[in-house]
């Protein structure tokens, strides 16, 4: 039988023309498919909205509470949740939002495996890789746009709160613009890491555990290494690399901002490359 033999009496209730005409798998079509998937599940939409709320809400709270401390010029605590600068205060929500974007990224892929949908998805796109690219672009892109908007809102409204103590930052402050623009890059990047981890692990529980461990605990764990190498190792871990480019002021314990961004993108490339190889080769 040749490729396009149309059924002799036409499809059931379908068009009588050659069904394959004008059709075929293209990346834009797979992107459209992933967009439909992303917007058609209410829990995903809600979690995305929650990310925005957390990013703005926590920024407002830390801006409201830290204003007085910054105004006094007092030394701020070095505790992990405490922002060290006014810009950091307005963007304080990143710490929590990264868990949401990471977990959502895991879910976007792992739910395909847990529901069995992956079989239908890969039967429709047997070359497979367009599915990974489309998920990455759609979810990463959506996260970037949403968190960019949320970051801008958090920055300007937080700055207004801080200004009541005369410490409100502006975008022209050193490093402020970079911090505001790279925060969504980091959050979207963590989401993409989630997709890559879920592709490798095929499990929601494992994927979420790994990504939380990576952003919250890995740095502390590396701190247990012999002090001679600990600081060098911590510097190049994903979360520290992210801090390096999202902090307005340079922290000597971290990489420079652009080095940090390069390292972070390196992790993304590595994780996606591994996911590509595994998705292509593994039985689904």
């Amino acid at each position: 039988m040749t490729l396009t033999v149309p059924p002799s009496t036409g499809p059931p209730a379908g068009p009588a023309a050659d069904p394959a005409a004008g059709r075929g798998v293209t990346l834009p079509r797979v992107i459209h498919s992933e967009w439909i998937k992303l917007r058609s599940v209410r829990s995903t939409t809600l979690a995305l909205a929650l990310t925005v709320v957390v990013l703005i809400g926590v920024g407002l709270i830390s801006s409201a509470t830290m204003g007085e401390t910054f105004a006094k010029g007092a030394d701020v605590d070095d505790a992990p949740f405490t922002p060290t600068s006014p810009v950091g205060a307005t963007l304080g929500g990143v710490f929590f939002a990264q868990l949401l974007t990471g977990a959502l990224g895991v879910l976007v892929m792992s739910v395909e495996y847990s529901t069995g949908m992956i079989r239908a998805t890969l039967s429709a796109v047997p070359t497979r890789l367009p599915v990974l690219w489309a998920k990455t672009l759609v979810f990463g892109g959506t996260l970037f746009v949403l968190t960019l908007a949320a970051t801008l809102i958090a920055f300007f409204s937080g700055a207004a709160l801080l200004e009541s103590h005369q410490v409100g930052p502006t975008l022209s402050d050193p490093g402020a613009l970079r911090a505001v623009l790279t925060t969504p890059v980091y959050l979207a990047g963590i989401g993409v890491l989630g997709i890559a981890f879920a592709t490798l692990l095929r499990s929601t529980a494992l994927g979420v555990s790994v990504i939380s461990f990576m952003v919250f605990l890995l740095d502390s764990l590396a701190g247990l290494l012999p002090s001679a190498i600990a600081s060098d190792v911590v510097k190049v871990l994903p979360a520290s690399a992210g801090n390096a480019f999202m902090s307005a002021q340079h922290d000597p314990d971290l990489l420079g901002p652009w080095a940090g961004l390069a390292v972070f993108c390196g992790y993304l490339a590595l994780a996606l490359a591994a996911a590509t190889v595994v998705l292509k080769r593994r039985d689904a």
Binding site: G22, R23, G24, V25, T26, R29, V30, H32, S33, E34, I36, K37, S40, M117, A120, T121, A124, V125
Partner: peptide
């Protein structure tokens, strides 16, 4: 939505 997401990958 389930069917639509599958269909559009092939241009259906």
């Amino acid at each position: 939505d389930h069917l639509h997401a599958l269909a559009v990958t092939n241009g259906i």
